[in-house]
């Protein structure tokens, strides 16, 4: 996001129009954004609304105005407050899906490598690396006391003697410490192909070029194995 010295957005209107046009082009948009009575049921049930300046009703109302300026105001941090729980979608009397519409806007922010998206997702890079390079998202050796001190003193149990404790889990697929389960190389290679063809690798390149380089090194190693 670009601002002048008074904090006013200096992003050209044409660019904002382009962003809205991109959202409306998504094949899910017309299913997610229907009529809105402004009843506020979605916001009343929205969990993050209790903790953030965030309202799915506002999201719907802004989209319904078709005003690129208003929609642009949500592309910064606003859309990242959503928990993606879909409470709003379940309870909307008009069958709108504000959570789905937010997913569309987030996809645009990431695809275009917006600075706000890069900033929000920076602490997420370790998870992205695991998932895209190895095929599952969370590994037992990620649960370290220094990373999760707020989970209490017992969390150190999860990292001590990890190898033998994982071996004691009576599922052979889980007897590994650096992945949730031991993903076979053939499954990983198929996943890489999917990420190539669907553009997932390109998205990561846009939002985190240095992470993309690291992932590609691993991908090349696995592909040539």
């Amino acid at each position: 996001m670009e601002y002048d010295e008074k904090g006013v957005s200096i992003v050209p209107l044409d660019f904002k129009k382009e962003i809205f046009k991109e959202a409306r082009k998504d094949f899910r948009y017309d299913e997610y954004v229907l009529g809105c009575l402004n009843c506020g049921v979605c916001t009343g049930g929205c969990p993050p609304h209790r903790f953030f300046d965030f309202s799915p009703r506002i999201v719907l109302q802004n989209l319904k105005t078709k005003d690129p300026e208003l929609i642009w105001t949500m592309m910064d941090e606003y859309i990242w407050a959503c928990f993606q729980c879909f409470t709003c979608a379940m309870i909307c009397p008009f069958l709108n899906n504000p959570g789905g519409a937010i997913a569309i806007l987030r996809e645009i922010a990431v695809r275009r490598g917006f600075e706000s998206a890069r900033k929000v997702l920076k602490p997420y890079s370790r998870v992205l690396l695991k998932l895209t390079a190895y095929g599952n998202q969370l590994s037992p050796d990620m649960i370290q006391p220094d990373f999760f001190p707020d989970w209490g003193p017992d969390i150190s149990y999860a990292s001590a003697d990890l190898k033998v404790k994982r071996k004691a889990i009576p599922m052979p697929t889980l007897q590994i410490t650096n992945l949730s389960w031991d993903v076979s190389p053939e499954a990983m290679k198929e996943l890489y192909e999917i990420f190539d063809e669907s553009g997932v690798f390109k998205i990561i390149e846009a939002v985190d070029p240095s992470l993309y380089e690291i992932i590609m090194d691993i991908v090349e190693d696995v592909r040539s194995s």
Binding site: A103, E107, A109, V127, S184, E186, E190
Partner: peptide, 30 residues
């Protein structure tokens, strides 16, 4: 229960939006 399975990648999608319907549906189909 086998090794020849990938993550659905949807936790990542709902957290970071670094996928799209083609990617998610292809992982599911795989």
């Amino acid at each position: 229960d086998e090794r020849n399975q990938t993550s659905c990648t949807a936790w990542n999608y709902h957290g970071s939006a670094t996928s799209n319907p083609v990617g998610l549906a292809s992982v599911a189909a795989r």
